[in-house]
Every structure is written in structure tokens, then in C-alpha cells.
């Protein structure tokens, strides 16, 4: 456990010591604000709800989360430090969890910095703070799921750009499984039961469940097991690929 903390601290410090972190946070804040105010026109609708804010998260994360996570293992393998890391008395689990948590925490910090949004809707009227709270939880879990996918692809390639592209494509696929268009398309030739089962595996479906003001235990379990599964796959890929 202490080694997990050591890895986590090192990674997190790494984020904040590079300008990339600040660029990321600024882009994230500008993009969320831009989408909310200029595309969804939060002020014009004058609705005291953050739906117009959270609805953008799956799409913004699609690029921003892989950007945060792509270097986690690619860089380690490319620079050869993976040999150092895995000859120190650290277990594979500690290393993987440490890195994942560091990046997740970093995204969490960026997410917390969107609190002026809450202030804004509080000014517009009296929002349902329960919904805002669970939506934040859902958003954070969604980011975690994207990040776990990114970690997996980061372990697959030494090239950060390749890791990034593969992660974006994979996350997009996971998202689209539940999108209305895709479900309608499947309904065209599959029994409704099957297309529903497929959409049950979508990030989107579960993310939306959190926007209803309650923490759906199935969706919570879904995100947590999705993260667990991706990180396990990450471990397997690392074991296979670390020598290269």
C-alpha cells in the first residue's frame, strides 16, 4: 500500500509540474463553460439545472481523458523506466492502481474546479442539489471508466499518439453502444431484448442514470467493475509487452 502511495504521489506531482496539466485544466474549464453557455444557452433557458452542463461531459471526456492517460504506460515503456519500476519492490497491482488513481484524482480536481457552474445555477434559481451531487459522482465515474480504457491502450503501445487514438476510438464505441441512434439501428434487425442488453454495456446509459438524482447501485457496480476489468486487462497486457 505504501508503494501505491509512492507511485500515486510521483505521478500526480508529475502532472502538476508539467505545463500540460494547466493546459488541460484550462481547456477543460473553457470547453465545459463554452458548451454550456454558448451551445446549450444556459442563460437564455434560465433553467436552474446543470443538465446543460453534464450532457457535454461524455463528449469532452472522449478527448480529454485519453489525453491525460495516454502517457501513463507508453512513456514508461518508451523510456525504459518500466524496467526500473518493475525491479523495485513494487507489485504490478500497486503500480497500476497508483498510476490510475493519480490520473483519476487529477481529472477529479479539474472537475471540482467547475464549481462556479453550481454557483451560476444557484443564482438563476433553486436547483436540485441532490441531482447536481449525483451527476458529479456519475461524471467522475465516467471519467474513471474512460481512463481505465486509456490505461489499457497506453500499455499496448509505446507511442503515445497511437495510444491516444486507440483509446478515443474504444471509448467512443463504449459510449455509442447506448446512444439512441445506435439502439434504433440495432432494433431494426435484433430483438429488443438483445439491443437493450447491448445498450446496458454502454457508458452513456449508466452515466445518464446518475442524472436522475439517485445513485443507482447497478450503475455504480457497472462503472467499478468496468474499471476493474480494464485495469486487469492492463496488467495482462503489461506482463506480455513489458519486455519489448
Amino acid at each position: 500500500m505504501r508503494n501505491l502511495k509512492a507511485v500515486l504521489k510521483r505521478e500526480l506531482k508529475g502532472y502538476f509540474e508539467s505545463p500540460v496539466a494547466y493546459v488541460f485544466i484550462i481547456i477543460f474549464l473553457l470547453a465545459t463553460a463554452g458548451c454550456t453557455f454558448f451551445i446549450s444557452r444556459l442563460f437564455d433557458t434560465r433553467v436552474a439545472s446543470l443538465d446543460a452542463f453534464f450532457v457535454w461531459h461524455p463528449w469532452l471526456y472522449l478527448f480529454l481523458v485519453p489525453a491525460v492517460g495516454m502517457r501513463l504506460w507508453s512513456e514508461e515503456r518508451k523510456s525504459g523506466t518500466i524496467e526500473l519500476l518493475f525491479t523495485l519492490p513494487i507489485t504490478l497491482i500497486e503500480a497500476i492502481a497508483g498510476k490510475f488513481l493519480a490520473a483519476w484524482l487529477f481529472i477529479g480536481i479539474a472537475l471540482l474546479l467547475t464549481f462556479p457552474m453550481v454557483v451560476t445555477v444557484a443564482y438563476l434559481g433553486s436547483p436540485d442539489y441532490g441531482i447536481i451531487f449525483t451527476s458529479y459522482i456519475g461524471s467522475f465515474l465516467l471519467a474513471g471508466a474512460y481512463l481505465a480504457v486509456t490505461c489499457l491502450f497506453s500499455a499496448m503501445s509505446k507511442n503515445q499518439v497511437i495510444s491516444f487514438v486507440l483509446a478515443v476510438v474504444a471509448c467512443f464505441a463504449m459510449l455509442m453502444l447506448g446512444a439512441g441512434v445506435f439502439t434504433d439501428f440495432l432494433n431494426g434487425f435484433l430483438p429488443v431484448g438483445i439491443s437493450e442488453a447491448i445498450s446496458a454495456f454502454s457508458f452513456f446509459t449508466h452515466f445518464q442514470n446518475f442524472q436522475r438524482g439517485l445513485i443507482d447501485s447497478r450503475s455504480l457496480i457497472y462503472f467499478i467493475s468496468m474499471i476493474g476489468f480494464m485495469l486487469t486487462a492492463n496488467a495482462v497486457v503489461l506482463e506480455m509487452k513489458k519486455a519489448e
Binding site: R10, G14, E17, S18, S79, G80, T81, E83, L84
Partner: peptide, 8 residues
């Protein structure tokens, strides 16, 4: 070739 974390 002594790999080490270059960003530290």
C-alpha cells in the same frame, strides 16, 4: 543505459 524518470 540507466533509465530514470526524466521529468523529475
Amino acid at each position: 543505459s540507466a533509465p530514470s524518470y526524466k521529468d523529475m
